[in-house]
Amino acid sequence: MTTSQASLLQISKLNKQYGKFTAVREINLDVDPHQVFGILGPNGAGKTTTLRMITGLIQPTAGTILIDGHDLHKDPMKAKAITGFIPDRPYVYDKLTAFEYLEFIAGLYSLKKSKAADRMHELLHTFHLHEWADSLIESFSHGMKQRLVFAGALLPKPKLLVVDEPMVGLDPKGHKLIKELFVKLTRDEGMTILLSTHTMEVAEQVCSQIAIVNHGQIIAQGSMNDLRMSTGESEGTLEQVFLKLTEEQEEERAAKVAERFGQDPLPATHNAE
């Protein structure tokens, strides 16, 4: 479906609560098509929870998620059909071969056999898995499994690719491959990529827009330059900007808690991821 609105992904007032604990609070986000959008944040900030809600793995407590105009809650099949997901840990079916795994993914997305075959051929070569196509996944290293999950997620040519910590477990060669791939996918295939990462270098090199999340909220959003300007770190790296923003927020929160309870607050320890 082609929508009239510019954003491929629109999130409004997204909330996730686990009992009394709020993991994600009132997140609003618009992601334009054909770009790599990075979500950064410290551990437990709510990045993974947000990504898992966007891919339909977790149900939000409140809020709406529109993917290319399809409401994930009301029309999940259509929204999921154009979304690919790569989790931080590549749990796949160990007793299948790489080829069988890709055929299985093709089945889940009801792909045409001839087109799926072309795509499988291309992806097996791109991710250097063609020699291992008939080997059981249980014999694969972590990096090979991660590359296979990439291949599986890209097989249906999703419009939106959601990636959680793409560099976990990959060697430097894998890092390079993935960074180049992200650029190629947005440029040549018109894909939109939403990725969460801890690796500032990756975010700095491939993301055109960045949102910084802390305590379940977006505390800053924009291009690298926008973020630098907002923190006054005009020459700073993303790491410096990130640390400044998150530390400022910690101080702000601490002050608020102290004001409310009249004592020194303890640091927040909840982990949403």
Binding site: T55, G56, K80, F85, Y91, L108, S110
Partner: peptide, 12 residues
């Protein structure tokens, strides 16, 4: 098991 995410995020 932990591979269930595969089915959950698919359009099925």
């Amino acid at each position: 098991g932990r591979s269930f995410w595969q089915l959950l995020q698919a359009p099925v």
